[in-house]
């Protein structure tokens, strides 16, 4: 565990908590893509099945349980408790165009053709594109609440920090996982446009609105 990995996890945890608190306190999920949140719940479910088979550390287990719990709670708030505030008309990304290719690819390109490994690979590929419905929704509504941009910033930052963690681990431990690295690079690239808007607008106190 190196500092980049730890700050990456804390950034991820911050994003998940920010979103959950935003919806809970404002009692509204306006501007939030329920589809992306369902994809994230799928990512955690398929990735953390090893909770049932392997114990790595208290940190590892507790973080996985928190991630799964918060992601399902967020999906519940969006589709059940605050369903009336869910903006379905703008959350129209065709997620089947993500899940099907990702599912196929996880069967073709993986480290080991075992159920747990294929599900892990599926979760890695899915996480890389899971934010697309949310980014698509923002491009359709043309704006995003500031708190939502903070959520996206920490969410994008977490995998960018993981990339640095993998450089660190390759250099010091000779460890690298090509599947996680390639997917992580794709995932982080998808945030670049948002990062630019976040730094040039939100950090200057302006509202994030498109077109720029």
């Amino acid at each position: 565990m190196n500092i980049f990995r730890l700050t990456g996890d804390l950034s991820h945890l911050a994003a998940i908590i920010i979103l959950l608190l935003k919806i809970w306190k404002s009692r509204s999920c306006a501007g939030i893509s329920g589809k992306s949140q369902i994809l994230f719940a799928m990512v955690f479910t398929t990735r953390y099945l090893d909770l049932l088979t392997a114990y790595i550390s208290l940190y590892n287990t507790s973080m996985k349980i928190i991630y799964i719990g918060c992601s399902y709670a967020t999906v519940y708030l969006i589709y059940a408790k605050f369903k009336a505030t869910y903006d379905g008309n703008h959350d129209t990304f065709r997620v089947e165009f993500l899940v099907v290719p990702v599912g196929g690819l996880s069967f073709l390109v993986n480290h080991d053709f075992s159920p747990l490994e294929i599900l892990w690979t599926f979760s890695i590929y899915l996480e890389a594109v899971a934010i697309l419905p949310q980014l698509f929704m923002i491009s359709k509504t043309g704006e995003a609440e500031t708190i939502t941009t903070h959520y996206l910033f920490f969410l994008g930052l977490y995998r960018a920090l993981y990339l640095i963690n993998w450089v660190w681990r390759f250099y010091f431990e000779g460890f690298f996982d090509m599947i996680a690295i390639v997917a992580g690079v794709v995932q982080t690239i998808l945030y670049c446009d948002f990062f630019y808007l976040y730094v040039t607008k939100v950090l200057k106190g302006k509202k994030l609105s498109l077109p720029a």
Binding site: M1, R5, D9, H12, D50, A54, I56, S57, N60, M63, K64, Y67, H111, D112, S114, E117, W120, Y162, N165, F175, D177, A180
Partner: peptide, 10 residues
């Protein structure tokens, strides 16, 4: 081989 390294990352 990868799979004998526990997936300690989240």
């Amino acid at each position: 081989e990868l799979d004998d390294i526990e997936k300690d990352e989240l």
